[in-house]
């Protein structure tokens, strides 16, 4: 995030860090115990799912603490229109974890917005571990920034003919103070407060550079994908859990028998 400030523990408990080969590459948000919402472009075709790690309950990427939980990915569901009508259109991914998140004051889910949410006069914030300068500097601390929403027609005027904005996209940036999302913030949530509850209205998706005030950050509009998100979370069962148990296979029984006999002989 450019122009962001340090975020305190417990302020954004749904924030997720997505790592690949041990390095932070994207953000995400917790929807439920098994599901994380992120951006589709964080999951390139060439990348292996086994190489991803997901961290929750963390603000400093170098300091996991007693509230930090680590997860492996069971499956990723990419929106069917990803890159279909736009180079970064349909930029939504549902990530199912192999095991369940344990909720606490430091780890909580975000709400989805109602489909008819009126976006005027909302206080909206974004968070992330993305680059903190256009030169590519990175930081380990989670940053936060309040970003005004920019009407889509106005955002389209700013981007001009070079980048077309789909109806499923929304824009936000603080042009006066140069606050904007940057590389590494992708997948992180844009959340707005309504009636004492935070709702996720956007997913960090793309933009032209980070420090050019005339090019706001572009987000996937969560309201546009609501039915797709709800459908998958309802129909997909939790992943099978591997429970520790005593095996009754003949081979293991034999091993146990031989071990007991060995102990008896020693005695």
């Amino acid at each position: 995030l450019l122009g962001g400030e340090f975020a305190r523990d417990r302020k954004w408990p749904w924030q997720v860090s997505l790592h690949y080969s041990g390095f932070h590459i994207c953000g995400g948000s917790i929807l439920s115990a098994y599901w994380v919402l992120s951006a589709a472009h964080c999951f390139d075709r060439g990348k292996k799912l086994e190489t991803y790690d997901i961290y929750v309950g963390i603000t400093n990427l170098e300091k996991a603490n007693r509230h930090t939980q680590w997860f492996e990915i069971y499956q990723v569901i990419i929106h069917p229109t990803f890159q279909m009508y736009h180079p970064i259109g349909g930029d939504v991914a549902l990530v199912q974890l192999k095991s369940a998140i344990v909720f606490s004051d430091f780890v909580l889910p975000i709400c989805l917005p109602p489909s008819d949410l009126y976006l005027i006069n909302l206080s909206c914030w974004t968070t992330g571990w993305g680059m903190i300068s256009p030169q590519g500097e990175t930081g380990n601390e989670l940053l936060e920034a309040q970003l005004p929403l920019i009407p889509r027609f106005q955002c389209q005027l700013l981007y001009g003919l070079s980048s077309y904005l789909l109806p499923e996209m929304l824009c936000a940036a603080d042009i006066k103070t140069m606050k904007n999302v940057c590389e590494g913030d992708s997948g992180s949530p844009l959340v707005c407060k309504q009636n004492q509850t935070w709702l996720q209205i956007g997913i960090v998706s793309w933009g032209r550079g980070c420090a050019q005030p005339l090019y706001p950050g572009v987000f996937a509009n969560v309201s546009y994908f609501l039915s797709w998100i709800r459908y998958h979370l309802q129909i997909i069962p939790n992943p099978p859990q591997i429970l520790p148990s005593l095996s009754s296979s003949p081979k293991n029984t034999l091993i146990i028998f031989v071990t007991i006999m060995g102990h008896l002989l020693v005695l």
Binding site: D9, K11, W12, L31, W35, V102, C111, P114
Partner: peptide, 27 residues
Amino acid sequence: VSRRHPKSQANSLSGDVACGQPVLQGK
């Protein structure tokens, strides 16, 4: 385990935990 009050959020997908309500609220 969270001490949050459940079942208050129509838009929650998380079942028994209230969504969007951090313990630490910004001013």
